[in-house]
């Protein structure tokens, strides 16, 4: 009876001891490690990137979660599990960066290609601009050349004209003075005391007419002079009539009369002395003063 009672007591004590003992507690820190692992496994970007390391971490976390009376061992297992989870995460990040690199490589390549294309385009458009400018220049040069040719032709033409003029003036024996070109017609034009032009003596007048026709901008002043023999009045009248004859002749030759002015100067302005016959002959003259090309001179 005594032995039975002690056996029952022992059993109850044992049961009580078992019942009072709380359910085994997870070691300190193991919940946090588990949470870290779960976060990694739920991250869509990282979850599948490092499978081996993640599995390794999972095993370590499971072990860390086992109830463990040895506190030091429990802490050690939690430490190991924590490092393994971090390692798995770092490996996953490395993998992800390497995968992103492919995309970045493509972007870099595209940017380089775009840059090269852009440079090529710029070079092309620069080339086009340069070509357009060159073409413009060519046109300008051609234009300049033809301008130069035209100028040369014009210069030649005026030179030719000037030479022609010079020749004509030489033929006319017109002397340049400050009054203009002076053509002196001798008294062989007229019979003594008369004012009608002698036929056959008009060669110079014809030349003068041609000249005035060719250079229509010129005007002429025709002045008649006599020697001192006879009265001033009759000399004045004769000289007027002689100058007028010359004018009428030129008008008949086609020279417009408003380009010509005739005056008589009588005995005035002798060019030689009146004492000798030759002197008096020289004084008996008609002077035609041809204006300068710009209209200057040619009479007052």
């Amino acid at each position: 009876m005594n032995t039975h009672y002690s056996m029952i007591a022992a059993a109850v004590a044992a049961a009580l001891a078992l019942g009072c003992a709380s359910t085994p507690k997870q070691p300190a820190g193991s919940e946090q490690v588990r949470a870290k692992l779960t976060a990694l496994q739920n991250d869509p970007a990282l979850a599948t990137q490092a499978p081996v390391a993640t599995k390794d971490a999972e095993l370590a976390v499971k072990q860390a979660e086992i109830a463990q009376p040895d506190v030091a061992l429990a802490a050690h297992r939690v430490y190991i599990a924590d490092r393994k989870v971090d390692t798995a995460k770092a490996q996953a990040e490395t993998k992800m960066a390497e995968m992103q690199r492919t995309a970045l490589n493509k972007q870099s390549e595209k940017a380089r290609l775009d840059a090269r294309t852009r440079e090529a385009d710029l070079a092309k458009s620069d080339a086009l601009v340069a070509r357009a400018e060159a073409a413009e220049q060519k046109v300008a040069v051609t234009q300049a050349r033809s301008d130069a040719d035209a100028a040369l032709l014009a210069a030649n033409a005026s030179r030719q004209e000037a030479e022609d003029l010079q020749r004509q003036l030489e033929v006319l024996q017109a002397k340049p003075t400050d009054r203009g070109l002076v053509l002196t017609l001798g008294d062989t034009l007229f019979a003594t005391g008369k004012s009608e032009l002698k036929s056959g003596a008009t060669v110079n007048l014809d030349r003068l007419g041609d000249f005035l026709s060719e250079y229509p901008d010129r005007t002429a002043a025709i002045e008649g002079f006599t020697d001192s023999i006879g009265s001033e009045e009759s000399n004045q009248s004769l000289s007027e009539r002689r100058a007028d004859s010359v004018k009428r002749y030129l008008v008949a030759r086609g020279v417009k009369s408003d380009r010509l002015r005739s005056t008589g100067r009588g005995e005035n302005a002798p060019v030689a002395d009146n004492e000798s016959p030759s002197g008096r002959q020289q004084n008996r003259r008609v002077e035609v003063i041809i204006s300068q090309a710009n209209g200057a001179g040619g009479g007052k």
Partner: peptide
């Protein structure tokens, strides 16, 4: 534990280098 720390150091280094390369690009 020393070994676990060293392996974490290696993994962290790889990640740091990989990110640096990408940032450069």
């Amino acid at each position: 534990e020393a070994r676990a720390d060293a392996e974490l150091a290696v993994a962290t280094t790889s990640a740091a280098k990989a990110n640096a390369v990408n940032a450069d690009m």
